[in-house]
Computed example of a mutant assay.
Amino acid sequence: MKFPFGLFVVCLVAGLWPAAKAAAQTPRSLANEMVGQWELATAGRDRACVVTLRNNPVPLGMKVEFEKGCEEVLPFTGAIASWTVKGLDLVRFQDERGEPVIDVTEVEGGILEGVRTGEGVYILQNLVAARALSKSSDQMIGDWVMVRSNGNPICGLTLTNNEADGPENFQVFLKPKCDPTVGRFAPSMWRIERGEMLLISASGEVWRFGADDHAQWRRIPDSADPFIMVRQ
């Protein structure tokens, strides 16, 4: 018995439609997910500003708004006129001609990453999540140990709430028998800034640590054998 060609076409279309529909909806779904407020920052979050993505159509894309002062903090934002979704997973910030200023793609839930040549990596993160990383200084007071990635301790530290050189900086004390690398650095104060823990030496040298998913703080930028701060 011959299989009717018309029925074959119907079955073929029916079989392909769910996949085609999913593929067609993916960019639009991503665009919907992106609407809202985000933090655009350098990888170390030493420079950051708030970006609002809207679904209002503008020439070549959708409306984007930056908080006051963004252009001073991240100069390239001054060239961004709109945003759009390209392909399945790329969010493009573009100029008035539609040329990319920076492209970002998701690296984990709610966090997107992009690179600007000659400048480095930039992170786009949901604003609520980014601000949740900001820890209260009171929660950080106490004894800590700095370890290598293998868990071997290299130095003990005590973070205090004693003010040092201003109301946002506090004294830190090293315990005896620290690794020479930490001993030479010799941090004398610490503070929380944009969700990071900063250890600062008397000479002004700064080590930055970012919170990870294990309630630890890893030195930024990350490396194959990082220094990790763990509460004792």
Rank of each mutant, 00 (worst) to 15 (best):
V73Y: 08
A79G: 05
M62T: 10
N55I: 02
T52A: 13
G44R: 12
E72L: 13
V51W: 03
D46F: 08
E39S: 12
L40P: 09
F76W: 15
E72K: 15
E39G: 05
E71N: 14
R47D: 14
V58R: 09
P59K: 15
V73H: 05
T42F: 07
L40T: 10
V51H: 03
C49L: 01
C70S: 00
P75F: 01
G61C: 11
E71P: 05
A79P: 02
N56I: 10
W38H: 00
T42Y: 04
P75R: 00
T52K: 11
G78L: 06
G69L: 10
I80K: 06
L74S: 04
W38G: 00
F66Q: 00
K68A: 08
R47N: 12
W38M: 00
L53I: 11
L60V: 03
L40Q: 05
C49K: 01
M62D: 07
V50N: 08
P59W: 10
A79N: 11
R54Q: 09
A41L: 06
D46S: 12
P75Q: 01
W38S: 00
A79H: 11
G44I: 09
A81W: 11
P75G: 01
V50C: 05
A41W: 03
E71G: 12
R47L: 12
L74K: 03
G61S: 11
L40K: 04
I80P: 07
V51E: 01
K63W: 08
R47W: 13
N55G: 02
L40M: 03
D46N: 13
K63I: 04
F76T: 04
W38Y: 00
L60T: 06
E67M: 13
G44K: 14
V64A: 01
V58S: 10
K68T: 09
G78H: 07
A81D: 14
R45M: 10
T52V: 13
G44W: 09
E72D: 15
R45E: 09
E72Q: 14
P57E: 11
F66W: 04
G61F: 14
A48D: 09
G44A: 15
E67Q: 15
R45F: 14
K63R: 13
E39N: 04
V73T: 15
P59C: 06
A81E: 12
P59Q: 14
A48Y: 07
F66L: 00
M62Y: 15
A48R: 15
T52F: 06
L53C: 08
T52H: 13
K68G: 05
V50S: 06
K63D: 13
W38P: 01
R54M: 07
T77R: 06
L60F: 09
C70R: 00
N55V: 01
F76M: 12
A79Q: 11
R54F: 03
T52P: 07
E67S: 15
L40H: 04
F76N: 08
V50F: 05
V64K: 02
V73M: 14
T52E: 14
P75S: 02
E71D: 14
L53Y: 10
T77A: 05
V73N: 11
E65D: 15
K68V: 04
P57M: 09
C49E: 03
E65Y: 01
A48F: 08
E65F: 02
G69P: 02
C49V: 01
I80W: 08
G69R: 10
G69Q: 10
E67P: 06
